[in-house]
Design a protein around this nucleic acid. Structure first.
Length: 417
DNA sequence: TCTGGGGTCCTAGGACCC
DNA sequence: TCTGGGGTCCTAGGACCC
């Protein structure tokens, strides 16, 4: 059996952890640059506030309804996520952290009838340790555990814990769940499935995987097999190294100036390099891109592939090539740039180092320097490349951000007795 | 005025090989 | 009148996830 444990309205719940006055209140969290609504507390959902709605379109409505609005605060969410996952590790040695707010656990070894109780214990312990509410779903496959989690949150009878054991007993429930709630079935597929009169989970579970493989894809056939209780996916406990690293942001204001655009890609390149070194990888091919707003009538977008002469993770090399790409291939006078980014798209592990007779290697001094820079930035200060600029005017808006309660000394909450 | 930021995998088709 | 067959690698585009 697998368990899928998932935090309820994760970002919104995080905002309530150090603001108990907001529990039971409508709370929403915005995406970067205060763009769209990406999380809503239960009370906000009940007010009918839609997900992924642009904030500017409904900010008046939110104010009138007394909704508490927050910019995204990833320092806080990341730290609380780690605490939730650490708590979960006590319940199973085999755990796959699947996203910032959910994990799969291997529950084999526990008697079937003890599972509901175990689920409730997970939920209670996490709330006691971190003050975050979770839902727990269990099933014989990951897809069934996901489905059980969905039922756990929707059904009043479940109280946020649901175990799918004997499949036949669930057919009545499955008949009522639209097929797009199944993990792996998105909007396109559910549209195509509807053409074949497959609307509910029950409709899907009754299909023949082999036949569906021909009509759709191997993934759809695997999803059906998993729904039928036969596992196709195992637990990924040790995450594979990343295949690409992308860093991109929208600007707080439109950028018309080439130097500012260069500063921005310099910053994104630098951030991407930090991630790259943390992953102990090097990059051989990079992509640099920038564009005006997607909603512009004259949408302008450019991207350039930049091959590097040798695999490297030296921020100085990457930043300078990224800026050159902006200057020579991307910037165009008069274009109101709304976003830019850097993608590191062909990565190699630092070790074992793969060399050929004609490729130079990153020298020792460069590696030492990067190590030192990372160390300083992790412990006591901030070293950066001058071309990133200082406090740039185009940086993203986050006007409604809460304090980094758990990760910055000045933001530490004070308890008055 | 204002519309997020990451990722992965699969498939089809073309180029090329023997 | 009349197509060989089997394979790999790469890329673009599509679909999915959170």
């Amino acid at each position: 059996m697998y368990a899928l444990v998932d935090c309820n309205s994760f970002f919104a719940s995080c905002e309530q952890v150090f603001r108990p006055d907001l529990r039971g209140q409508p709370v929403v969290v915005l995406s970067n640059n205060d763009g769209c609504i990406v999380a809503r507390s239960k009370e906000a959902k009940q007010l009918g506030i839609p997900d992924l709605q642009p904030y500017f379109k409904i900010s008046d409505q939110l104010r009138q309804a007394g909704v508490h609005v927050f910019s995204s605060n990833y320092e806080l969410y990341g730290d609380l996520s780690t605490r939730v996952m650490d708590t979960l590790k006590a319940f199973s040695p085999n755990i796959e952290v699947y996203s910032i707010d959910e994990s799969f656990l291997d529950m084999s070894g526990h008697a079937l009838k003890t599972l509901p109780e175990l689920g409730r214990a997970m939920r209670d312990t996490i709330y006691r340790h971190v003050r975050l509410p979770v839902g727990v779903g269990m099933g014989a496959t990951k897809t069934l555990a996901k489905l059980a989690n969905h039922i756990a949150k929707k059904s009043n009878k479940c109280h946020y814990v649901c175990v799918i054991d004997r499949l036949e007993q669930w057919h009545k429930v499955f008949a009522k769940i639209p097929v797009h709630h199944v993990w792996g079935i998105g909007s396109r597929l559910s549209g195509r499935l509807a053409d074949q009169r497959i609307y509910s989970v029950l409709d899907l579970i009754q299909q023949d995987p082999e036949r569906m493989k021909k009509h759709y894809s191997v993934n759809v056939s695997r999803t059906i097999t998993e729904l039928q209780g036969i596992p196709c996916y195992g637990l990924d406990e040790t995450p594979e190294p990343k295949k690409q690293i992308i860093s991109t942001r929208s600007f707080g204001v439109k950028v018309f100036n080439c130097l500012a655009l260069e500063q921005s890609v310099s910053q994104y390149a630098s951030r991407a390099c930090e991630k790259l070194r943390k992953e102990q990888q090097r990059v051989k091919t990079m992509m640099v891109f920038a564009s005006s707003s997607r909603f512009d009538a004259n949408y302008y977008t450019r991207s350039v592939i930049v091959p590097l002469s040798m695999p490297t993770n030296d921020s100085r090399v990457i930043c300078s090539l990224a800026r050159k790409a902006v200057r020579e291939c991307i910037y165009k006078s008069g274009v109101p740039f709304a976003r830019a980014g850097v993608g590191l798209i062909e990565l190699y592990a630092e070790s074992p180092e793969q060399l050929d007779a004609f490729t130079a290697r990153q020298d020792e001094r460069s590696q030492e320097l990067m190590k030192l820079v990372d160390h300083i930035n992790q412990t006591c200060g901030r070293v950066f490349i001058a071309s990133q600029g200082i406090d740039p005017y185009w940086k993203m808006q986050r006007n409604l951000k809460s304090p980094a309660y758990t990760t910055r000394w000045p933001d530490l909450p004070i308890v008055k007795v």
